[in-house]
Design a protein around this nucleic acid. Structure first.
Lengths: 340, 340
DNA sequence: CTGTTAGCGCGTTCAA
DNA sequence: TTGAACGCGCTAACAG
């Protein structure tokens, strides 16, 4: 069974084993694998047959070292579990795969310190590019990135002064658009629930957008209509109940985070509150499930997948030397459904 | 601004630049980074200061090549978007990160051919281990793995003849347990809806478990109570409606796939069917959302996160030479809630 | 505790 | 169209 093993310990064959078997030099094997058209058909066939027979798997680690190139992109997301990021991940993984490149993935747990450590580790692995969801970074992280000179793309928001490239939508613009939309549908007392704005810039931007909308509508900023909660379905439910007892005249709540809106909707169902009769509910991201709930939920549609795809493409363009540093605002869409 | 750059083009400093700056040999720098306790405090400080000052980032690619070790694990999941896999991913990413290792991620799109290509690519990247969700593989994939001699862990099911290690639960046992549970609660006509059993072994195993349960209960196998559908919320809704028209006396449906049960529940809400009055609904995976719907959904709880953690740990143990090939059945749990 | 020598498995650069 | 020499940046194995 194991007789075919080329080296003891199952460590696999090296290129020179192939060369020997095919009766050619190392370089010919190398070329047969990378630029087969440059060899005579005969030599190429001999070599490729030997490769197959021996079961040679090239060592791209060694290739990278020798050529000073890399085929790995590093991507850091705040949370691997969050399906919103999974969408973006899927986009970049697909593009990279098609280009014969690879994705190294890590999870910063929403921490800048952790992100810094990960950036260091990825640079040590000589990734050829970095995709970062966060737009806030430690000074050391910025310094490492600059020194390494690798292309970087930020995807979580449109930062004022990007490190390098950007592919995102604007959290502030999106939140503003939804609040204006709710006002246009006649809601007067619009509540706003988000994640912690102190530690999460995206939440902060969304709040900013919401407040900007209120201002442009001539509506007052009312603290009883603003709230910040942790992530999760339960948080959304609590936030709704709390706000409705603090401000009984609230007629719509805009949940600017993850699954908060769904949690609130389920709680409303449980209590028999009519949505949108008693309270209208709007969400931020267009999770699949939002169009199936009863009632279907109004929300923003964000180009998560597209962000992943375009990020990877921009990185590839830069690695290949074609293509400039790109700043993409991929926009968003307000999806009006039954819940508002 | 860029004056601090050590080499033109921002390619970063090498170890020998650090050695020169610190006035020591290459090896001393190498040791200062990897086994600092073996150096005198003075030398160590000199070197580490130089490292910091120059902003040296080690090249682990070169280190891997020289030491014939790797700090990267490859993980292949059927679908990156599927939040069930995200859970497993999170588990392994956390463990690996703590151990200073890295995760290379790819998506096979439920295809064995694609999996084979990815395994080849990962082996070329000299990953030190492989985590595979699928338990079906092409002959070439198996051959490559054997030749490479890297540890592998399969996580999607408990295969009859594993490649190497396993950390999973048994799909057949889990499905059987749920059907028995429904029967114990008095349901007589239990429908079963799964994903395509022709292309998906896990779906096949679940069906097998369900049928085994029916048999042990002395219930007949009734084709009108079995159905296979594509993934997605809508599929679940359709499957329920179809089955109830084909077999109006069905009193419970066990949805053995993803979000099918949720789709069905929403459809029931929409039509005003009482759950479990008119029809009882059970799901397979314990998605967060299942405990918040109205009614809360009965389902199986599977150790997705734990599978990821234990996989990574088993791999690490093997890489470090401590630890045997492990076969873990991590079990499951039936969660009885309001929907049955 | 520190340094020297000899590669790791390839790609680049030249020459044939 | 093919091959030989050299080096990528680092570590293992030894010597001192």
């Amino acid at each position: 069974m194991a007789e075919g093993r080329v080296r003891s310990g199952g460590q696999g064959a090296r290129m020179r084993d192939v060369a020997k078997a095919a009766g050619v030099s190392l370089m010919t094997v190398s070329r047969a694998l990378r630029e087969p058209q440059r060899l005579s058909e005969e030599t190429r066939k001999t070599v490729l047959d030997a490769v197959k027979k021996i079961g040679y798997v090239p060592n791209s680690i060694a290739a990278n070292l020798a050529s000073n190139r890399s085929s790995v992109v590093g991507q850091i997301v705040p949370s691997i579990q969050n399906s919103l990021y999974a969408e973006t991940l899927k986009g970049s993984a697909d593009v990279l795969r098609t280009a014969g490149m690879h994705l190294m993935l890590a999870d910063s747990g929403y921490s800048m310190q952790e992100e810094e450590a990960l950036i260091g580790a990825f640079l040590a692995q000589r990734v050829c590019g970095l995709i970062l969801h966060n737009t806030d970074h430690t000074p050391r992280a910025l310094e490492m990135i600059e020194r390494a000179g690798v292309p970087v793309i930020e995807t979580g928001d449109i930062p004022r002064s990007p490190i390098d490239m950007v592919a995102s939508y604007s959290n502030a613009e999106a939140a503003k658009a939804m609040t204006l939309h709710l006002a246009a549908r006649g809601y007067k007392r619009i509540g706003f629930v988000s994640l912690d704005t102190k530690i999460n810039r995206r939440a902060r931007e969304r709040l900013r957008g919401h407040l900007a909308a209120l201002k442009s509508l001539g509506l007052p900023k009312d603290a009883s209509l603003l709230s910040e909660v942790g992530p999760g379905l339960t948080s959304g439910a609590h936030a709704m109940v709390d706000m409705m007892s603090r401000a009984p005249d609230v007629d719509a709540i805009f949940f600017a985070g993850d699954v908060l809106a769904i949690g609130a909707l389920f709680e409303a169902q449980r209590r028999g509150w009519k949505v949108p009769g008693r309270i209208a509910i709007a969400g931020f991201d267009d999770l699949d499930i939002l169009q199936h709930t009863v009632p279907r939920l109004t929300c923003l549609r964000l180009p998560r997948l597209e962000i992943g795809r375009r990020s990877a493409e921009a990185l590839l363009d830069r690695v290949r030397g074609t293509g400039d540093a790109v700043r993409l605002d991929l926009g968003f869409e307000v999806i009006q459904r039954e819940s508002t």
